[in-house]
Design a protein around this nucleic acid. Structure first.
Lengths: 151, 151
DNA sequence: TCCTTATCGATGCAATTGCATCTATATGAA
DNA sequence: TTCATATAGATGCAATTGCATCGATAAGGA
Protein backbone atom coordinates (compact mmCIF):
# COMPACT_ATOMS: atom_id res chain seq x y z
CA UNK A 1 0.00 0.00 0.00
CA UNK A 2 1.72 3.16 -1.22
CA UNK A 3 1.39 6.51 0.49
CA UNK A 4 0.15 8.51 -2.50
CA UNK A 5 -2.89 10.62 -2.11
CA UNK A 6 -5.92 9.69 -4.18
CA UNK A 7 -7.32 11.48 -7.23
CA UNK A 8 -10.44 13.56 -6.56
CA UNK A 9 -12.45 11.29 -8.86
CA UNK A 10 -11.37 8.30 -6.80
CA UNK A 11 -12.40 10.00 -3.56
CA UNK A 12 -15.78 10.91 -4.97
CA UNK A 13 -16.44 7.42 -6.29
CA UNK A 14 -15.28 5.97 -2.98
CA UNK A 15 -17.65 8.15 -1.03
CA UNK A 16 -20.58 7.23 -3.23
CA UNK A 17 -19.73 3.55 -3.02
CA UNK A 18 -19.53 3.60 0.77
CA UNK A 19 -22.68 5.58 1.20
CA UNK A 20 -24.82 3.83 -1.35
CA UNK A 21 -23.85 0.34 -0.31
CA UNK A 22 -24.62 1.07 3.32
CA UNK A 23 -27.90 2.69 2.41
CA UNK A 24 -29.03 -0.23 0.29
CA UNK A 25 -28.03 -2.80 2.89
CA UNK A 26 -29.82 -0.85 5.56
CA UNK A 27 -33.02 -0.61 3.55
CA UNK A 28 -32.94 -4.28 2.69
CA UNK A 29 -32.23 -5.38 6.24
CA UNK A 30 -35.08 -3.19 7.35
CA UNK A 31 -37.44 -4.80 4.83
CA UNK A 32 -36.43 -8.26 6.01
CA UNK A 33 -36.92 -7.35 9.62
CA UNK A 34 -40.28 -5.82 8.87
CA UNK A 35 -41.31 -9.12 7.27
CA UNK A 36 -40.14 -11.06 10.33
CA UNK A 37 -37.30 -12.64 8.39
CA UNK A 38 -33.66 -13.21 9.36
CA UNK A 39 -30.83 -10.97 8.12
CA UNK A 40 -29.06 -11.01 4.78
CA UNK A 41 -26.16 -13.12 6.04
CA UNK A 42 -28.57 -16.00 6.57
CA UNK A 43 -29.68 -15.76 2.99
CA UNK A 44 -26.11 -15.77 1.74
CA UNK A 45 -25.35 -18.99 3.56
CA UNK A 46 -28.61 -20.66 2.57
CA UNK A 47 -28.03 -19.61 -1.01
CA UNK A 48 -24.56 -21.13 -1.13
CA UNK A 49 -25.75 -24.31 0.50
CA UNK A 50 -28.67 -24.59 -1.88
CA UNK A 51 -26.31 -24.16 -4.84
CA UNK A 52 -24.01 -26.79 -3.40
CA UNK A 53 -26.81 -29.34 -3.37
CA UNK A 54 -26.93 -32.60 -1.44
CA UNK A 55 -23.16 -32.83 -1.19
CA UNK A 56 -23.19 -29.80 1.04
CA UNK A 57 -20.19 -27.63 1.80
CA UNK A 58 -17.37 -27.62 4.28
CA UNK A 59 -17.46 -24.55 6.53
CA UNK A 60 -14.10 -23.41 5.23
CA UNK A 61 -15.50 -23.36 1.69
CA UNK A 62 -18.32 -21.18 2.90
CA UNK A 63 -15.87 -18.70 4.37
CA UNK A 64 -14.53 -17.68 0.96
CA UNK A 65 -17.93 -17.51 -0.60
CA UNK A 66 -19.72 -15.38 1.96
CA UNK A 67 -16.79 -13.16 2.88
CA UNK A 68 -17.17 -13.66 6.62
CA UNK A 69 -14.55 -14.39 9.24
CA UNK A 70 -14.07 -17.96 10.36
CA UNK A 71 -15.56 -17.41 13.79
CA UNK A 72 -18.55 -15.63 12.30
CA UNK A 73 -19.26 -18.53 10.00
CA UNK A 74 -18.87 -20.94 12.88
CA UNK A 75 -21.44 -19.12 14.94
CA UNK A 76 -23.77 -18.34 12.08
CA UNK A 77 -23.88 -22.03 11.18
CA UNK A 78 -24.65 -22.85 14.80
CA UNK A 79 -27.63 -20.49 14.70
CA UNK A 80 -28.90 -21.86 11.42
CA UNK A 81 -28.54 -25.38 12.71
CA UNK A 82 -30.40 -24.48 15.89
CA UNK A 83 -33.22 -23.25 13.67
CA UNK A 84 -33.22 -26.49 11.72
CA UNK A 85 -32.25 -24.81 8.47
CA UNK A 86 -29.17 -26.92 7.96
CA UNK A 87 -27.54 -30.05 9.30
CA UNK A 88 -23.95 -30.83 10.11
CA UNK A 89 -22.59 -34.17 9.02
CA UNK A 90 -19.28 -35.73 9.94
CA UNK A 91 -16.98 -36.12 6.97
CA UNK A 92 -15.40 -39.52 6.56
CA UNK A 93 -11.92 -38.63 5.38
CA UNK A 94 -11.23 -35.73 7.73
CA UNK A 95 -11.99 -36.15 11.39
CA UNK A 96 -11.52 -32.44 12.06
CA UNK A 97 -14.20 -31.28 9.75
CA UNK A 98 -17.84 -31.55 8.89
CA UNK A 99 -20.12 -31.07 5.97
CA UNK A 100 -22.98 -28.66 6.15
CA UNK A 101 -26.12 -29.43 4.19
CA UNK A 102 -29.28 -27.42 3.76
CA UNK A 103 -32.53 -28.98 4.99
CA UNK A 104 -35.97 -28.70 3.42
CA UNK A 105 -36.82 -26.00 5.99
CA UNK A 106 -33.66 -24.25 4.95
CA UNK A 107 -34.75 -24.26 1.32
CA UNK A 108 -38.15 -22.99 2.30
CA UNK A 109 -36.63 -20.20 4.36
CA UNK A 110 -34.35 -19.26 1.50
CA UNK A 111 -37.37 -19.00 -0.78
CA UNK A 112 -39.25 -16.86 1.73
CA UNK A 113 -36.33 -14.52 2.20
CA UNK A 114 -35.90 -14.17 -1.54
CA UNK A 115 -39.42 -12.88 -1.97
CA UNK A 116 -38.49 -9.84 0.09
CA UNK A 117 -34.83 -9.64 -0.84
CA UNK A 118 -35.48 -9.93 -4.55
CA UNK A 119 -38.18 -7.29 -4.37
CA UNK A 120 -35.76 -5.04 -2.55
CA UNK A 121 -33.15 -5.49 -5.28
CA UNK A 122 -35.75 -4.78 -7.92
CA UNK A 123 -36.85 -1.60 -6.18
CA UNK A 124 -33.43 -0.33 -5.23
CA UNK A 125 -31.50 -1.21 -8.38
CA UNK A 126 -33.74 -2.45 -11.14
CA UNK A 127 -36.01 0.55 -10.96
CA UNK A 128 -33.20 3.06 -10.84
CA UNK A 129 -30.97 2.04 -13.74
CA UNK A 130 -31.51 0.52 -17.18
CA UNK A 131 -30.23 -2.95 -18.01
CA UNK A 132 -27.35 -1.41 -19.91
CA UNK A 133 -26.43 0.85 -17.03
CA UNK A 134 -26.60 -2.06 -14.60
CA UNK A 135 -24.19 -3.96 -16.79
CA UNK A 136 -21.82 -1.02 -16.92
CA UNK A 137 -22.00 -0.70 -13.16
CA UNK A 138 -21.34 -4.40 -12.65
CA UNK A 139 -18.39 -4.28 -15.02
CA UNK A 140 -16.82 -1.29 -13.28
CA UNK A 141 -17.31 -2.86 -9.85
CA UNK A 142 -15.83 -6.08 -11.17
CA UNK A 143 -12.63 -4.24 -11.95
CA UNK A 144 -12.37 -3.19 -8.31
CA UNK A 145 -12.24 -6.73 -7.04
CA UNK A 146 -8.97 -8.01 -5.85
CA UNK A 147 -7.12 -9.64 -8.76
CA UNK A 148 -6.70 -12.66 -6.52
CA UNK A 149 -10.43 -13.13 -6.30
CA UNK A 150 -11.76 -15.07 -9.25
CA UNK A 151 -15.25 -15.22 -10.73
CA UNK B 1 -41.74 -2.17 -1.75
CA UNK B 2 -43.36 -4.19 -4.50
CA UNK B 3 -43.07 -7.96 -4.73
CA UNK B 4 -41.67 -8.18 -8.26
CA UNK B 5 -38.62 -10.22 -8.87
CA UNK B 6 -35.50 -8.42 -10.01
CA UNK B 7 -33.91 -8.42 -13.47
CA UNK B 8 -30.80 -10.60 -13.78
CA UNK B 9 -28.69 -7.50 -14.49
CA UNK B 10 -29.93 -5.98 -11.26
CA UNK B 11 -29.05 -9.09 -9.29
CA UNK B 12 -25.59 -9.21 -10.78
CA UNK B 13 -24.90 -5.54 -10.09
CA UNK B 14 -26.26 -5.97 -6.57
CA UNK B 15 -23.97 -8.88 -5.89
CA UNK B 16 -20.96 -7.01 -7.14
CA UNK B 17 -21.86 -3.94 -5.13
CA UNK B 18 -22.27 -5.92 -1.92
CA UNK B 19 -19.11 -7.90 -2.39
CA UNK B 20 -16.86 -5.10 -3.57
CA UNK B 21 -17.95 -2.62 -0.95
CA UNK B 22 -17.36 -5.13 1.83
CA UNK B 23 -14.02 -6.11 0.41
CA UNK B 24 -12.81 -2.52 0.15
CA UNK B 25 -13.99 -1.63 3.62
CA UNK B 26 -12.31 -4.70 5.02
CA UNK B 27 -9.00 -3.92 3.35
CA UNK B 28 -9.10 -0.33 4.48
CA UNK B 29 -10.00 -1.18 8.06
CA UNK B 30 -7.18 -3.67 8.05
CA UNK B 31 -4.72 -1.04 6.85
CA UNK B 32 -5.85 1.36 9.56
CA UNK B 33 -5.55 -1.29 12.23
CA UNK B 34 -2.11 -2.26 11.00
CA UNK B 35 -1.07 1.38 11.35
CA UNK B 36 -2.43 1.52 14.90
CA UNK B 37 -5.19 3.90 13.88
CA UNK B 38 -8.88 3.94 14.81
CA UNK B 39 -11.60 2.68 12.44
CA UNK B 40 -13.19 4.44 9.50
CA UNK B 41 -16.18 5.65 11.49
CA UNK B 42 -13.85 7.83 13.55
CA UNK B 43 -12.55 9.43 10.40
CA UNK B 44 -16.03 10.13 9.14
CA UNK B 45 -16.95 11.98 12.30
CA UNK B 46 -13.68 13.89 12.50
CA UNK B 47 -14.04 14.83 8.84
CA UNK B 48 -17.52 16.22 9.31
CA UNK B 49 -16.49 18.12 12.42
CA UNK B 50 -13.44 19.54 10.68
CA UNK B 51 -15.62 20.70 7.79
CA UNK B 52 -18.05 22.26 10.22
CA UNK B 53 -15.30 24.41 11.73
CA UNK B 54 -15.37 26.21 15.07
CA UNK B 55 -19.14 26.34 15.14
CA UNK B 56 -19.18 22.58 15.52
CA UNK B 57 -22.17 20.37 14.90
CA UNK B 58 -25.12 19.12 16.86
CA UNK B 59 -25.12 15.32 17.23
CA UNK B 60 -28.38 15.04 15.31
CA UNK B 61 -26.78 16.80 12.36
CA UNK B 62 -23.99 14.28 12.44
CA UNK B 63 -26.46 11.41 12.29
CA UNK B 64 -27.58 12.31 8.76
CA UNK B 65 -24.08 12.93 7.54
CA UNK B 66 -22.41 9.76 8.76
CA UNK B 67 -25.36 7.43 8.25
CA UNK B 68 -25.19 5.92 11.72
CA UNK B 69 -27.97 5.23 14.18
CA UNK B 70 -28.58 7.75 16.93
CA UNK B 71 -27.28 5.49 19.69
CA UNK B 72 -24.18 4.71 17.70
CA UNK B 73 -23.39 8.36 17.25
CA UNK B 74 -24.01 8.98 20.93
CA UNK B 75 -21.52 6.32 21.92
CA UNK B 76 -19.01 7.09 19.20
CA UNK B 77 -18.93 10.72 20.32
CA UNK B 78 -18.36 9.58 23.89
CA UNK B 79 -15.33 7.56 22.77
CA UNK B 80 -13.90 10.39 20.72
CA UNK B 81 -14.42 12.76 23.61
CA UNK B 82 -12.70 10.36 25.99
CA UNK B 83 -9.73 10.39 23.62
CA UNK B 84 -9.69 14.19 23.60
CA UNK B 85 -10.47 14.39 19.89
CA UNK B 86 -13.55 16.50 20.35
CA UNK B 87 -15.32 18.52 22.99
CA UNK B 88 -18.97 18.83 23.86
CA UNK B 89 -20.34 22.29 24.56
CA UNK B 90 -23.75 23.17 25.93
CA UNK B 91 -25.88 25.04 23.43
CA UNK B 92 -27.53 28.20 24.71
CA UNK B 93 -30.90 28.07 22.99
CA UNK B 94 -31.67 24.39 23.48
CA UNK B 95 -31.22 22.89 26.91
CA UNK B 96 -31.60 19.36 25.59
CA UNK B 97 -28.72 19.48 23.20
CA UNK B 98 -25.05 20.13 22.84
CA UNK B 99 -22.58 21.19 20.22
CA UNK B 100 -19.68 18.99 19.33
CA UNK B 101 -16.44 20.61 18.22
CA UNK B 102 -13.21 19.08 17.00
CA UNK B 103 -10.06 19.75 19.05
CA UNK B 104 -6.53 20.27 17.74
CA UNK B 105 -5.76 16.63 18.63
CA UNK B 106 -8.81 15.68 16.66
CA UNK B 107 -7.53 17.54 13.61
CA UNK B 108 -4.17 15.91 13.99
CA UNK B 109 -5.75 12.48 14.25
CA UNK B 110 -7.86 13.16 11.18
CA UNK B 111 -4.70 14.05 9.28
CA UNK B 112 -2.93 10.91 10.42
CA UNK B 113 -5.85 8.69 9.48
CA UNK B 114 -6.07 10.32 6.07
CA UNK B 115 -2.50 9.36 5.22
CA UNK B 116 -3.50 5.71 5.39
CA UNK B 117 -7.11 6.06 4.29
CA UNK B 118 -6.24 8.20 1.28
CA UNK B 119 -3.53 5.80 0.24
CA UNK B 120 -6.01 2.97 0.52
CA UNK B 121 -8.48 4.78 -1.73
CA UNK B 122 -5.72 5.49 -4.24
CA UNK B 123 -4.66 1.86 -4.29
CA UNK B 124 -8.12 0.33 -4.32
CA UNK B 125 -9.89 2.71 -6.67
CA UNK B 126 -7.52 5.16 -8.29
CA UNK B 127 -5.22 2.46 -9.55
CA UNK B 128 -8.00 0.28 -10.88
CA UNK B 129 -10.09 2.67 -12.96
CA UNK B 130 -9.39 5.72 -15.09
CA UNK B 131 -10.66 9.15 -14.11
CA UNK B 132 -13.42 8.85 -16.67
CA UNK B 133 -14.46 5.44 -15.41
CA UNK B 134 -14.46 6.69 -11.84
CA UNK B 135 -16.78 9.48 -12.88
CA UNK B 136 -19.10 7.05 -14.61
CA UNK B 137 -19.11 4.87 -11.53
CA UNK B 138 -19.85 7.79 -9.25
CA UNK B 139 -22.66 8.95 -11.52
CA UNK B 140 -24.29 5.52 -11.62
CA UNK B 141 -24.01 5.10 -7.87
CA UNK B 142 -25.45 8.57 -7.43
CA UNK B 143 -28.58 7.44 -9.21
CA UNK B 144 -29.03 4.66 -6.64
CA UNK B 145 -29.27 7.05 -3.75
CA UNK B 146 -32.64 7.60 -2.25
CA UNK B 147 -34.33 10.53 -4.00
CA UNK B 148 -34.94 11.98 -0.56
CA UNK B 149 -31.24 12.24 0.10
CA UNK B 150 -29.77 15.37 -1.40
CA UNK B 151 -26.18 16.18 -2.34
C1' DT C 1 -50.86 28.74 31.94
C1' DC C 2 -51.45 23.69 31.48
C1' DC C 3 -51.14 19.61 29.21
C1' DT C 4 -50.00 16.69 25.40
C1' DT C 5 -46.78 15.46 22.12
C1' DA C 6 -42.25 15.76 19.83
C1' DT C 7 -37.29 16.03 19.86
C1' DC C 8 -32.48 15.52 21.78
C1' DG C 9 -29.38 12.62 23.57
C1' DA C 10 -28.10 8.79 26.89
C1' DT C 11 -28.29 4.08 28.59
C1' DG C 12 -29.67 -0.92 30.39
C1' DC C 13 -29.71 -5.11 28.47
C1' DA C 14 -29.36 -8.72 25.00
C1' DA C 15 -27.26 -10.18 20.71
C1' DT C 16 -23.44 -9.98 17.73
C1' DT C 17 -18.63 -9.27 16.50
C1' DG C 18 -13.61 -9.30 17.01
C1' DC C 19 -9.62 -11.18 18.98
C1' DA C 20 -7.01 -14.57 20.80
C1' DT C 21 -6.65 -19.03 21.79
C1' DC C 22 -8.03 -23.83 22.31
C1' DT C 23 -8.89 -28.77 21.02
C1' DA C 24 -8.57 -32.16 17.72
C1' DT C 25 -7.01 -34.17 13.65
C1' DA C 26 -3.90 -34.19 9.63
C1' DT C 27 0.48 -33.73 7.30
C1' DG C 28 5.21 -34.09 6.58
C1' DA C 29 10.03 -34.28 7.80
C1' DA C 30 13.55 -36.96 10.25
C1' DT D 1 7.22 -44.26 14.37
C1' DT D 2 7.85 -39.61 16.44
C1' DC D 3 7.72 -34.99 16.68
C1' DA D 4 6.90 -30.39 14.83
C1' DT D 5 3.85 -27.81 12.24
C1' DA D 6 -0.48 -26.81 9.80
C1' DT D 7 -5.42 -26.84 9.28
C1' DA D 8 -10.56 -27.28 10.73
C1' DG D 9 -13.61 -25.54 13.63
C1' DA D 10 -15.18 -23.89 18.39
C1' DT D 11 -15.16 -20.71 22.23
C1' DG D 12 -13.99 -17.37 26.43
C1' DC D 13 -13.91 -12.79 26.94
C1' DA D 14 -14.04 -7.92 25.77
C1' DA D 15 -15.90 -4.43 22.70
C1' DT D 16 -19.51 -2.98 19.80
C1' DT D 17 -24.19 -2.90 18.06
C1' DG D 18 -29.25 -3.06 18.15
C1' DC D 19 -33.41 -2.42 20.57
C1' DA D 20 -36.20 -0.39 23.65
C1' DT D 21 -36.77 3.06 26.68
C1' DC D 22 -35.63 6.81 29.69
C1' DG D 23 -34.98 11.67 31.41
C1' DA D 24 -34.96 16.26 30.09
C1' DT D 25 -36.32 20.13 27.47
C1' DA D 26 -39.18 22.21 23.60
C1' DA D 27 -43.16 23.28 21.07
C1' DG D 28 -47.88 23.85 20.31
C1' DG D 29 -52.74 23.70 21.11
C1' DA D 30 -56.68 24.40 24.56
Amino acid sequence: MTRRSPAPEAVKAWGRLMRVSRLLVEKTEYALKAAGLPPLAWYDVLHELAEAGEGGLRPFELIDRVLLAQYNVSRLLARLEADGLLEKLPVSDDGRGQTVRITPSGREMRRRIWVVYGASIAALMGDKLSAKELETLAALLGRLRDPLVGG
